[in-house]
């Protein structure tokens, strides 16, 4: 191809655009591949709608007032709800955010504003590794430290810490990326006014990257909210309302799992219902983020 002499031989004596048999075959083949590629995209898009469809259709019958206000009933009895799991998930997530957000934010600020040279590389690398860590391994780690040693029993705080560990790398990555997008001129202007660096970061850099940071935070909370594996090892679950972080606390994903694997049809409906609640919460969060970021882009 690269050799001009070969190229010149390929030039058709008639017109290069004249449709010959080879051209038709090539064109047909191109169409065929375009078809395959479209099908691939179609498959990718429809999988989401199929799964969402199932969750909505099978979960909707479970949704009623009891579902949000009652606690689960004994085995085989019809009725009850997932209220302790909802409050439990909210509590665990709030505590996880309380731990994870400052750490993630701080680490992101370090990477964008303070760190230099190879230390930045190392920390960024560690953060990426943490992001790729299987969540079950995080659960094993937190079990070994908090459940076995520090707290001494299955507890809400152990679950919150494992979720925080999952949240941190997501926050770090977004925060670093959006902070680097803040124009340097803003920083210069602030410093030139005699503002110390910490004031510059807090009152100038962070506010101008606000929407992006919030995106990262919400994404991390959404991701942590659906985590199940580490919670199974750390918070255990609870069919009663519990606000004590040093004791086991219920969580929607655990309740969903317990409902799903049990052999009672009513519990299966409740499993789908729990899935619907979980997806709705995540969906609302994601949509909110999308709206917020779009506003910032304009």
């Amino acid at each position: 191809m690269a050799d001009p002499s070969t190229l010149s031989f390929k030039v058709s004596p008639v017109s290069p655009l004249a449709p010959d048999r080879r051209y038709v075959a090539r064109k047909f083949y191109g169409r065929f591949m375009a078809g395959l590629i479209t099908v691939a995209a179609l498959v990718g898009v429809s999988v989401l709608w199929i799964i969402l469809g199932y969750v909505i259709v099978r979960g909707a019958p479970a949704i009623n007032l009891d579902f949000f206000t009652q606690r689960p009933l004994p085995y085989g009895e019809v009725g009850g709800g997932i209220a302790p799991s909802i409050t439990g998930t909210l509590l665990i997530l709030a505590v996880a955010a309380l731990i994870g957000v400052p750490v993630g934010l701080g680490c992101g600020i370090y990477l964008a504003e303070y760190g230099r040279g190879s230390v930045v590389e190392v920390i960024r690398f560690c953060s990426d590794l943490l992001a790729g860590l299987p969540s079950i391994v995080v659960g094993v780690f937190v079990w070994a430290i908090l459940v076995r040693q520090v707290v001494g029993n299955f507890s809400g705080i152990a679950g919150a810490v494992s979720l925080a560990i999952i949240m941190v790398p997501i926050i770090v990555r977004t925060v670093e990326a959006v902070l680097l997008l803040v124009p340097y001129t803003l920083r210069e202007a602030a410093l030139a006014l005699g503002v110390p660096k910490w004031r510059m970061v807090i009152s100038v850099v962070l506010p101008s990257a606000r929407a992006g940071i919030i995106t990262g935070l919400v994404l991390s909370v959404a991701r942590a909210g659906g985590e199940t594996a580490p919670l199974l090892l750390t918070t255990l679950g609870n069919q009663f309302f519990s606000w004590n972080l040093l004791e086991p606390i219920g969580a929607i994903p655990i309740q969903l799992y317990n409902y799903a694997v049990a052999p009672y049809p009513d519990w299966h409906t409740k499993a789908w219902g729990s899935a619907l609640v979980l997806i709705s919460v995540i969906g609302i969060l994601s949509t909110a983020v999308r709206v917020a970021t779009r506003r910032q882009n304009r």
Binding site: G106, I123, P196, W198
Partner: peptide, 28 residues
């Protein structure tokens, strides 16, 4: 100075990330 305090806070959180990773590996 407040600047130092802030800086150290940021440093501590930043080094928490590799610390967790290392602790995790060692403990396992």
């Amino acid at each position: 100075g407040a600047d130092d305090v802030f800086k150290w806070l940021v440093y501590i959180t930043a080094f928490a990330v590799p610390a967790v990773l290392v602790a995790l590996f060692i403990l396992l």
